[in-house]
Amino acid sequence: MVACAADGLEPEAALRFDHGGRTFVIARSPEGGYFAIDGHCSHEKVHLADGIVDGHIIECPKHFGAFDYRTGEARALPACIDLRTYEVKVEGDAVFVKI
């Protein structure tokens, strides 16, 4: 699935991507790499794309649960359940996510 244009996302930022009734977040690391994880925080249904990206961490905008978007690992309470990660490939100027 094409999630976004490669130049549509600056480093240390994230955006929302919806597909087939599911929602994901595409995050770009400070080094420029692209990553994809489930869009909703595992604590409550709040979209992580509305939160900030700080280094390799994406943070819930409401309760400050945090995840390493490279591994999906929950890194700060109240989030304690890891999120699923999805394979990402950049081809040409498009970012593809394998769902």
């Binding site: 979209h47 509305d50 905008p61």
Partner: peptide
């Protein structure tokens, strides 16, 4: 406002 507009 909306969460997406103000939270960050």
């Amino acid at each position: 406002g909306s969460l997406s507009a103000i939270a960050k």
